[in-house]
C-alpha cells in the first residue's frame, strides 16, 4: 500500500479521469430540463457525498480494528480517513449550497439530508479537534477510535430522526417514478465517470496522508529506540 509507484499511478489516473469528467459535465451531458445549468453541479456533489460518507465509515471500521488489535496502523488509517473525509464533506456542503441557491432560493435549509450531513460534519469536526488538542499517544488513539465508533453508530438514528423531522431534498437514484431520475444515458455515464474520478482522488489523498502518518509513527518509535541506544552507548564501562 505504501508503494510510491501505486501512488503515482493513482495520481495520474485521477488527473486523467478528472479531466474526462470535466469534459463530460460541460460538453457531453445534456443539462436537466427543469433546473438548467445548476443541475450540473450534481455530478460533483454526489461523488463528494459518497466519498465523505465512505471516509466516515472507514473511521469507524479502523476504530474497531484499533481497539481490537491495538496496532498503530489502524489508528493512522482512521485519522487519515477522518481528515480526508472532513475535506470532502466540506466541499460537498459547499457544492450543495451553490446548487441550492438558484434551485431552492436559499443557501441553506434545515432539510433532513442537509441536517444529517451538517451533524456528521460537526461530529468529525469534534473528532479532529480532539486529535489536534492532544499528543499522539495510544490513549488519544483509543479516544479517537471510540468517538469514531460512537459517531458511526449514531448515524442511522440521526437519519431516521431528521427524516421524520422534515425533508425536501430531491431523491435522486432512489425514486421509482423516475421524476427526478437520470433519463438520458449520457447522464448516467457522466455520473459514473465522476464517481470513479472522485473515488480515485479520495483514495489518493487518503494514501498520501496515511503514508505520512505511518512514517510519523515509525519515526517516533525509532526516536525512542535511538534514545535508548544513545543512552546505552554512553554508559560508563
Amino acid at each position: 500500500m505504501n508503494n510510491p509507484t501505486i501512488r503515482n499511478w493513482l495520481g495520474f489516473s485521477t488527473l486523467a479521469l478528472m479531466l474526462a469528467s470535466l469534459f463530460m459535465v460541460f460538453d457531453y451531458v445534456p443539462p436537466d430540463a427543469e433546473m438548467g445549468i445548476a443541475q450540473l453541479i450534481f455530478y460533483y456533489h454526489v461523488p463528494l457525498a459518497w466519498v465523505a460518507f465512505a471516509s466516515f465509515g472507514l473511521v469507524a471500521i479502523a476504530g474497531i480494528f484499533y481497539l481490537w488489535l491495538g496496532d498503530q496502523l489502524w489508528d493512522d488509517l482512521g485519522y487519515a480517513a477522518a481528515e480526508t473525509g472532513m475535506v470532502f464533506c466540506t466541499l460537498m456542503i459547499i457544492a450543495g449550497s451553490i446548487w441550492a441557491k438558484p434551485i431552492w432560493g436559499t443557501w441553506w435549509t434545515w432539510d433532513s439530508r442537509l441536517t444529517m450531513t451538517f451533524i456528521l460534519w460537526l461530529m468529525y469536526g469534534g473528532y479532529l479537534m480532539l486529535r489536534a488538542s492532544a499528543d499522539d499517544t495510544p490513549q488519544v488513539a483509543r479516544f479517537g477510535a471510540v468517538i469514531g465508533i460512537v459517531a458511526a453508530m449514531d448515524v442511522p438514528i440521526v437519519i431516521v430522526s431528521v427524516r421524520l423531522w422534515r425533508t425536501i431534498h430531491p431523491a435522486v437514484l432512489v425514486t421509482k417514478q423516475g421524476t427526478h431520475g437520470l433519463e438520458d444515458p449520457r447522464m448516467v455515464w457522466t455520473l459514473l465517470v465522476s464517481l470513479t474520478a472522485f473515488t480515485l482522488l479520495w483514495a489518493w489523498f487518503l494514501m498520501l496522508r496515511f503514508t505520512q502518518l505511518r512514517t510519523r509513527s515509525r519515526m517516533s518509535k525509532l526516536a525512542g529506540r535511538i534514545a535508548l541506544a544513545t543512552v546505552a552507548a554512553s554508559d560508563p564501562k
Binding site: L122, G126, Y127, I147, V150, D154, I157, V158, S161
Partner: peptide
C-alpha cells in the same frame, strides 16, 4: 470545552425526538 463539541452533535437525534 471539548465535551459539548463532541456530545451535542451526537445527541441531536434524541434531542429532536
Amino acid at each position: 470545552m471539548l465535551l459539548p463539541i463532541l456530545a451535542v452533535p451526537i445527541f441531536v437525534p434524541a434531542l429532536i425526538a
